[in-house]
């Protein structure tokens, strides 16, 4: 199968091992993957940049930087950036706190495999299905309202789409339910991989469990935590399925994420030039984030 990817000349090249060919060989191995990825990163970047200077659906009209000046003056765009950061920040913090607590409680448990399977079940559903599940629980089926009424925390049906913080809360709960296990699984593995003996020695010296955890286990996990949060953070910042299915930005755009903003302006209003300008801004932000965070954390994570 692998042979098929490479021209047969590469095969011969490797066998003969002339110095020049030995030098080229590793590049030939990595080239197909790089070319494929360039096609889906470089091309869209250039296309979006080009398209962002034009307006119109069928007949394109060059308007220079007008899309950008409109975009930076568009309150809805800034609002979607704000929403993304607020919803994302809360979600990430809650997921981290729960996942770390659960991992700390469970990692030396003899039944850790059992807990892990139960905890990861939500992660195995498609995000679109999960969005419908919570749409049903919060809105259409009124299940959450009913449960709150039964325990006396609410007196009537709650309109979760009526208030911006409740609607944002719905998105947070949906994401927390599905993706806390992502962090949990990583943290458990990291804790299990730590040297038991250090822990036991500290315990013999009379350290309490919480002291051992906060003074030894947690600091040792720093690189792992960084990587896990970066990976989860990227996914949360690009959150789309649940806003699209549950809230559609309601109320008054307070749950509109940047991803949903681009989708709405591009594929609902068909302002492709305008949406492309927003895409370019997001791509630039992505490159900055990738350069500053990811590279460093992945290096440190590899020992």
């Amino acid at each position: 199968m692998t042979d098929a990817v490479l021209p047969t000349s590469a095969l011969r090249m490797a066998r003969r091992r002339s110095p020049f060919r030995r030098k080229v060989f590793p590049y030939l191995l990595v080239a197909p993957a790089v070319v494929y990825l360039l096609a889906i990163t470089l091309y869209p970047g250039i296309f979006a940049l080009w398209r962002s200077f034009y307006q119109g659906r069928f007949k394109l009209e060059f308007i220079g930087l007008e899309n950008y000046s409109d975009l930076f003056g568009d309150e809805a765009f800034w609002h979607s950036l704000y929403n993304t950061l607020v919803i994302g920040g809360i979600t990430l913090a809650v997921e981290f706190a729960i996942a770390m607590t659960l991992a700390a409680l469970v990692y030396r448990d003899p039944f850790v495999r059992g807990w892990r399977i139960v905890f990861l079940l939500p992660m195995l559903f498609m995000p679109s299905a999960v969005a419908y599940l919570w749409k049903l629980l919060f809105n259409d089926g009124r299940v959450i309202s009913d449960l709150l009424m039964q325990v006396g925390l609410a007196s009537s049906n709650i309109d979760f789409m009526g208030s911006s913080w409740l609607a944002r809360g719905v998105l947070v709960v949906t994401d927390v339910w599905q993706w806390t296990p992502f962090l949990f699984i990583i943290f458990v593995a990291a804790l299990q991989g730590q040297d038991k003996e250090i822990e036991e020695a500290a315990r013999l010296d009379g350290a309490r469990w919480s002291q051992v955890f906060f003074a030894i286990s947690l600091p040792l996990m720093r690189p792992v935590i960084a990587i896990a949060l970066v990976l989860r953070g990227i996914d949360i910042l690009t959150m789309f399925a649940s806003p699209h299915i549950i809230t559609q930005g309601a109320p008054a755009g307070d749950t509109e994420t940047v991803s949903y903003f681009i989708y709405r302006t591009g594929f609902k209003s068909f302002e492709f030039g305008y949406a492309s300008a927003a895409s370019v801004v997001v791509l630039v932000l992505t490159v900055i984030l990738a350069q500053s965070f990811v590279r460093r954390f992945f290096r440190s994570g590899r020992e």
């Binding site: 889906i40 990163t41 091309y43 869209p44 970047g45 296309f47 979006a48 398209r51 910042l237 690009t238 789309f240 940047v258 991803s259 949903y260 681009i262 989708y263 591009g266 594929f267 492709f272 949406a275 492309s276 895409s279 370019v280 997001v282 791509l283 992505t286």
Partner: peptide, 9 residues
């Protein structure tokens, strides 16, 4: 890469 940012191209 944010999927939304490359969706249009």
């Amino acid at each position: 890469m944010a999927p939304a940012a490359v969706a249009i191209p």
